[in-house]
C-alpha cells in the first residue's frame, strides 16, 4: 500500500483527461452532426459552423492540461515519481475532480447549445456570432473549474 499515494494522483490525472475528453468528444460530435446537416444543403456555411463545432473541444484540452500539470508536479513526467503519502494522493485526486466533472458536463451542454447555434447560422448566417456567444457562455464554468483544479494542484505540498 506504500504506492497508494502515487496511484491516486495518477488516477486523478487520468480522470481529468478522460472525463473532460469524453465530454468534448460528445459535444464536438453533436455539433458536427448538426453542422453536416447545414453543409449538406449549403456548403458555403462550412467555415461559420466549424467555429461552433470547435467550441466544445476546449474542455478536452483543459483536461489534458490538468493531467500534464499533475503528472509534472508528481514527477511522472520528466524524471522520478514523487514518494506521495496516501493523503497527498487523495489531494491530487480531488484536485482533478473539478475539471474532470465540470469538463464532462459542460462540454455536453455546450455541444447542445452550439448545435442549436448551428440552426441560427443555417437560417440567419449574419447572426452567427450570437450563436457563438451563447455557446461560449457555457465555457465560463469549464474555465472556472480549470482554475480551481490548477490552484489546488499547485498548492499541494509534495
Amino acid at each position: 500500500m506504500s504506492n497508494m499515494g502515487i496511484v491516486l494522483a495518477i488516477l486523478g490525472a487520468a480522470l481529468a483527461a478522460l472525463l473532460a475528453g469524453i465530454g468534448s468528444a460528445k459535444g464536438v460530435g453533436l455539433v458536427g452532426e448538426a453542422a453536416a446537416g447545414v453543409v449538406s444543403v449549403d456548403p458555403s456555411k462550412f467555415s461559420k459552423v466549424l467555429i461552433l463545432q470547435l467550441l466544445p473541444g476546449t474542455q478536452g484540452l483543459y483536461g489534458l492540461l490538468t493531467a500534464i500539470l499533475m503528472l509534472s508536479r508528481i514527477g511522472v513526467i520528466g524524471g522520478t515519481a514523487a514518494d506521495l503519502t496516501t493523503a497527498q494522493g487523495w489531494q491530487f485526486f480531488i484536485a482533478a475532480l473539478p475539471i474532470a466533472i465540470v469538463g464532462l458536463i459542460s462540454a455536453i451542454f455546450q455541444g447542445r447549445t452550439a448545435a442549436a447555434g448551428v440552426g441560427i447560422t443555417a437560417k440567419k448566417p449574419e447572426h452567427n456570432g450570437k450563436g457563438i456567444i451563447m455557446a461560449a457562455m457555457v465555457e465560463t464554468y469549464a474555465i472556472l473549474a480549470l482554475l480551481v483544479s490548477i490552484l489546488l494542484i499547485y498548492n499541494i505540498e509534495v
Binding site: 453536416a36 449538406s40 443555417a122 437560417k123
Partner: peptide, 17 residues
C-alpha cells in the same frame, strides 16, 4: 432528442428556400 441534430440543422437551412 439530440439524434435529430443533423436533420433539424439541414431542415433549418432548407427553410430559407
Amino acid at each position: 432528442t439530440t439524434k435529430y441534430a443533423n436533420a433539424v440543422a439541414a431542415i433549418k437551412a432548407m427553410e430559407n428556400f
